[in-house]
Design a protein around this nucleic acid. Structure first.
Lengths: 263, 263
DNA sequence: CAGAAAGCGATCATTAGTAATCATTTGAGT
DNA sequence: ACTCAAATGATTACTAATGATCGCTTTCTG
């Protein structure tokens, strides 16, 4: 049994009962615990499951609290970026969130912000997103209004893309858009790995009064596959890992950089 | 029982009665009071509940979600109905799935069907759904193509409804539609609890060559709030709990009934 | 109002799971 | 057959989760 077969077998186990343990994999597939963990970690990286201590659970649905994802990520860079972005969002705002880990972290921060918790007639926050994991995470908050764009699911990123996505995005107006990117270069601008996502991202940015790119400092200087044409980003939120040179380069290109304080 | 399961179990207890005590957790889940308190504190941090002395009460969160993969219902009626519905679906089909527990069970069955597992260039199954829990569940199958309709999320059912949903549904053509209903009466026809879902359901049915209602036998004779105008259903899939009288009544109204064999 | 009882937070030892490293094996491509 | 890279399993040190204990605070009750 090779690695690919095994990964599929793990997904099967998971589909059966909604969860799987390291020991299950060890016994049923006959590999060592080390390999079982590595497999689970790979699948978690692909966002095909969520790691828990001792195993994994299906998907990233809201109530399957990923024990670690929420908790000890608190000092991480993505978390810092998310906190900085959250600080911009006032009560009652209408925001757009695309997919990606940083946006997911932002959704997590927003979903636990105390001042957005109160019950009221109007939603305390309206979120438009093309990421079904973000929608699933936020939907347990009855005081948030969640709109999903529709489209074809990209299984690697949980994002919805395609022409149907665009149709719906053209019908909304956002106060803020937060766009996670896979690479951000002072010259080339923001890039992502998937051309479909690039289209959705730039369209979402255009529908917003203020559009922010989210990128941790490791993405700076990187170039991914697809550029986002049709929109010039002016604002970037990143972490304190950015160098002075990079900061200067962005300023030369008229991009405001918000640096989230370090941990 | 690991931590993740336990947190879910606590939310279940809370959803049942609106409150939960430390002692409940200690006895029913078999952990120490210290752990029970730590669990409650974690959930309170996530704003999923509100701590009280001795336990916790519901926060501003809706957790009675149909996405809960019916762990204890596996041999149940819904499962039988799902198997019967699955038998109708051939490889390569384009199907529509609305939300609800029965549809979720069908998604579960489809996602583990061996003949739909093979890798190929074309998707072995294309699923159009307005339920984000179903999309999240099926997206781990790379050989399925998943399309989400878009719209406003109904936090009680995980379903997307509203005008944006309709726009996208008008652009697809389905081989089969499977519509879960909350009530089915031989005279009144199918009904659901939410008028938005009724609209989406009937539209999805109209877009399909063959539309099936899914309803376990307890729903027969019941009437929910919203009717589905604009489409006359001809086919119902239910379980063996249906009575001969009910069966005859449906036949008088020209509705074919597929009875899933008992467990 | 006083005392009892229940709950709580803090701390610590124990257990189980994990990350990191390294040697060995496997397997694909030449 | 040979080489090299990737995958695997074993070992180690580390970290998270749990349950027990203790002293303190809150709440109940007589």
């Amino acid at each position: 049994m090779n690695r690919t077969e095994r990964l599929n077998a793990i997904l099967d186990l998971l589909a059966g009962s909604g969860q799987v343990e390291v020991d299950d994999i060890v016994h049923r597939l006959g590999v060592s615990p080390a390999t079982a963990r590595r497999d689970l970690d790979s699948l978690a990286n692909e966002r095909l499951l969520t790691r828990t201590r001792g195993g994994a659970v299906q998907g990233s649905v809201a109530y399957d609290l990923p024990g670690r994802y929420n908790r000890d990520d608190n000092g991480g860079q993505k978390q810092q970026i998310a906190l900085a972005a959250s600080a911009l969002v006032h009560k009652g705002a209408v925001i757009g969130l695309c997919g990606g880990t940083t946006s997911t972290a932002l959704a997590q921060v927003l979903s636990t912000r105390a001042d957005l918790m109160e019950h009221s007639v109007r939603p305390t926050l309206t979120v438009v997103t093309n990421a079904i994991n973000i929608a699933a995470q936020l939907v347990v908050r009855p005081n948030f209004k969640i709109m999903v764009t529709g489209g074809i699911v990209n299984p690697r990123s949980y994002e919805l893309v395609g022409p149907y996505t665009d149709i719906i995005l053209q019908k909304v107006a956002l106060d803020f858009a937060f766009i996670g990117v896979n690479g951000i270069d002072p010259e080339v601008g923001p890039t992502v790995d998937d051309e479909g996502e690039a289209t959705v991202n730039s369209l979402m940015a255009r529908r917003a009064s203020e559009a922010y790119m989210l990128a941790d400092s490791s993405k700076i200087g990187k170039r991914a596959f697809a550029t986002m044409e049709g929109y010039h980003f002016h604002k970037l939120i990143t972490d304190s890992g950015i160098t002075a040179d990079e900061l200067a380069a962005f300023q030369r290109n008229k991009i405001d950089v918000i640096v989230a304080p370090g941990a």
